[in-house]
């Protein structure tokens, strides 16, 4: 791949991830939040950024990381993603247990919590499928359909979850990151013909 394109692709990715994080880092709301609450927020933002990286890795779109290598990193990032979600929920729990209990029981007054909790279970499911891929002895196509379906649920629910929240993320950079996450997921789904009918 030509060096200009390589540099460009990586630069766009770094900007797409760094700008929302930097914008959140100067949010005035941080002044009135405890370290646990702040950590919870940033874990959520980082998880969203990783949702952008995941399809790019599996599609082999990142220069220098063709599909086989990209897939290995995809697994590592997947584990980091699950840890980020766990920190997100744990930090919120420390901040206000009753609000998190409401969310987990789908009894929250805020609709975005439901989307977040659905995304949490879907990402857990996708990770379990990946971790026990061999043990499950599923057909490759069945496994792919299951993993990709869960990933699609994670993407849609996480994006709705994030967009409905008034928090530390700056609106424009949040919308931009969410848009890229959706576009990357759609592109890899189409390119890899996950749902293509085969004979």
């Amino acid at each position: 791949m030509n060096p200009v394109r390589t540099t460009l692709v990586w630069a766009v990715l770094v900007v797409a991830i760094a700008v929302p994080i930097a914008a959140a880092a100067v949010s005035p709301l941080l002044a009135w939040r405890s370290p646990a609450y702040i950590a919870a927020g940033f874990a959520g933002i980082i998880a969203m950024a990783l949702l952008l990286v995941q399809p790019l890795l599996i599609g082999g779109y990142l220069p220098g990381l063709p599909a086989p290598r990209g897939r290995r990193i995809h697994r590592v990032i997947g584990a980091v993603l699950v840890i980020a979600v766990a920190i997100h929920v744990a930090g919120l729990w420390i901040t206000s247990p009753p609000d998190v209990i409401d969310a987990l029981l789908f009894a929250s007054p805020t609709p975005f919590s439901d989307w977040g909790v659905i995304a949490m279970w879907a990402v857990t499911g996708a990770a379990v499928l990946a971790a026990f891929r061999r043990r499950f002895r599923m057909r490759v196509r069945t496994w792919r359909h299951a993993h990709t379906s869960l990933a699609a649920i994670v993407v849609v629910c996480s994006v709705v979850h994030a967009l409905l929240i008034e928090g530390t993320m700056e609106t424009l950079s949040k919308v931009a990151l969410c848009t890229l996450v959706v576009l990357a997921a759609i592109k890899v789904g189409v390119d890899l013909r996950v749902w293509a009918v085969r004979r």
Partner: peptide
């Protein structure tokens, strides 16, 4: 009463 009204 509203959902979540009694939290904290």
């Amino acid at each position: 009463s509203m959902r979540g009204g009694s939290n904290n």
